[in-house]
Design a protein around this nucleic acid. Sequence first.
DNA 1: CCGCGAAGTAATCACCGATTACACTCAAAC
DNA 2: GTTTGAGTGTAATCGGTGATTACTTCGCGG
Lengths: 215, 215
Amino acid sequence: MDKSPAPTDRQTDRSYHHGSLVDALVHAAVELIEVYGVEKLSLRAVSKKVGVSPGAPFRHFKTKSELLKAVAEQSMLRLTQAVNASLAAQTSGDPVALLGAIGRGYLNWALSNPTHFQIISSRTLIDFHSSKTLVEQNDAIYKLMLEQVTIGQAAGAIRGDASAHDLVVNARAFVYGLARMAVDRHFREWRVSGDPRQAAAEALNLYLRMIATSS
Amino acid sequence: MDKSPAPTDRQTDRSYHHGSLVDALVHAAVELIEVYGVEKLSLRAVSKKVGVSPGAPFRHFKTKSELLKAVAEQSMLRLTQAVNASLAAQTSGDPVALLGAIGRGYLNWALSNPTHFQIISSRTLIDFHSSKTLVEQNDAIYKLMLEQVTIGQAAGAIRGDASAHDLVVNARAFVYGLARMAVDRHFREWRVSGDPRQAAAEALNLYLRMIATSS
DNA sequence: CCGCGAAGTAATCACCGATTACACTCAAAC
DNA sequence: GTTTGAGTGTAATCGGTGATTACTTCGCGG
């Protein structure tokens, strides 16, 4: 249970003041969560890893939940970055393909960072709506999806028997469900074998055929 | 924070032996979770509510997680009951409608019992695969869905550009994602307003149109 | 009727989040 | 240069938690 034998992980070795405790705490928290899981995270362990007293974090984060929120904000920014990068990498201008790129970016990031995904998805670990960053970044993804669906519908490439908004929610439900099934390890009992990432990618492709107008 | 002023909730008032501590513990745990949430559940509070010493539960459940597993098993049985009931209530023999009934039963139960849904979905709170009941009941739902999809594909009512298994996983991902969005309170930031149940029902209908062959 | 195993108790351990009073340090003001 | 005060980390402590242990009590089968 000894989380860090030498507390020199990320310390500038200043005698008293740490220098950048906030960053160090967030960083250490992520590492601990990665190894032991979110629900096992304790502020004491974080403090110990950083090499600081158990009470020190409370100078910067009023509660454990606020530290998690800081972690979540950092994670959310990385998620939108990943989605944007995936979207930018999609050369084809086909709106269905672009929508797929968004979903692929989302899924890949979620499967690569299950812990972070779990945190930003939760509404019990953190107070989502109290963070401007979290709300804004989430909204950015919504708008990205809405844009592609709207364009796709106008071009007749995406089915028109529902509003663009309804289709976006529909698509998000699917991708979110897929990501959670993977992260929460539901694939096994649903007889999905092999590499989860590839399985998710293939499932996404099927969904894209479903949302596109039959050709 | 006083969870139960009078510990007479569910006690046969036998002096020493309780009589049915196991049932009483599960029942009390469910009630406490319902009010305070899973993550706040403590064995001490459960013990207190039942009117028993803090160590007593350990005679019957080796860990807190095992108590939760007992709760999960009870919940899972109720879920499959709800799904079966919804399926039985669907008079039309149309496989798409029958598949929809399964999804509707699942969603309604999840939204009516968010806490139980959260527990049986989790793989960190409980050890899912160590419970025969959990695995079997989950499998029963898979087979129910697979049956309808297979029939639907044979009748040409459900799209044939993917295997029945892939479509089942696809549908499950969608319904699961929708349920989790509702339970995890994601609807707000995705601009879904009004009654969550109706919103979920409408989203499900759209999905059913997507999985059905275009008519 | 009695004794033995099952079931609950009481005391305890190590750990947790959070609060408080206190100590140290550093930089700006004079 | 010294001083002073805000900012930052410490130490001690509180109430609560899961889990373990030794002990006590009950009540059923012989």
